[in-house]
Design a protein around this nucleic acid. Structure first.
Lengths: 135, 135
DNA sequence: ATTGACTTTTGCCATTTGGCGAATTAAAAT
DNA sequence: ATTTTAATTCGCCAAATGGCAAAAGTCAAT
């Protein structure tokens, strides 16, 4: 990881200072003890996700921004379903398909995959590549 | 939060089963000990963010999806709100399904929907072995 | 200097996470 | 059935988190 624990501490402290909060004040609004916050800032402790979440807004951070900073979340996570519309060029899930399928219960979704897998293995065996697909 | 720890465990276990991994296999690819994974699944331990992050991809989850599920991230993310919020009771696209389907060309994806629609209309209208049950 | 009110740091401790190895349970194979 | 093998759970332990209360350290006005 590119980001050491003490770096995170420095970032947090700098941010706390620029929003001009004391450890106690931040502790009060975030419900994390001031001593613990202090140790986090000087790199003696590593904040858990819960703590990170609590101090995010009081410091003016986005939750996932802080998570990324802490190395919990990787820089930008491409979500497979909707989020990836613009991203993935070759392999992406058609939004219309995603929408329709999402309305089915999960068991049905999985069953669909099961059927698809069967069909694929069948067509692998019999080699029927007919490309006469109507639009 | 609406989601208890044992729910998360159940979710993780179900997902592990559907991708057909054993605890040891998941442990191997995620570098989390099988015993710990087992305890997490049956709700005896709560996974830290690090662990959550490690097991996300092997299970076919999105990182932030799992984080949201675990209550670390709030489901505030604009466009995908329903994905995690309406969440585990119905109207959401299973990430594993999405992943597999996304690897197929769009025509295949559409064809799958076509088949699904056919099956639904069949089961609605006639077909399915009806033994003398008047409605 | 000294008192006073704050802010930060430190000691100590309860609780939890997570790993390792052994034991138990489940599954296969002979 | 029994032996073999793989999978899950249990016991124990090291390490880390996080809180509380007391001990510094700061800075102002006396």
């Amino acid at each position: 990881m590119a980001l050491g624990i003490s770096d995170l501490g420095k970032i947090l402290k700098r941010q706390r200072i620029t929003v001009s909060l004391t450890l106690q004040e931040l502790a009060a609004t975030s419900r994390v003890s001031p001593s613990h916050l202090g140790r986090i800032e000087r790199g003696e402790r590593f904040p858990s996700a819960h703590v990170l979440r609590r101090i995010a807004k009081p410091l003016g951070f986005d939750e996932d921004e802080l998570f990324t900073l802490a190395g919990f979340l990787s820089p930008q996570t491409p979500s497979i379903a909707e989020k990836s519309q613009a991203g993935y060029s070759g392999h992406r899930l058609d939004p219309y398909v995603a929408k329709l399928l999402a309305e089915e219960p999960v068991e049905v979704q999985r069953a669909v995959i099961g059927i698809l897998t069967m069909l694929k293995s069948i067509s692998r065996g019999t080699a029927v590549t007919k490309d006469s697909s109507p639009t």
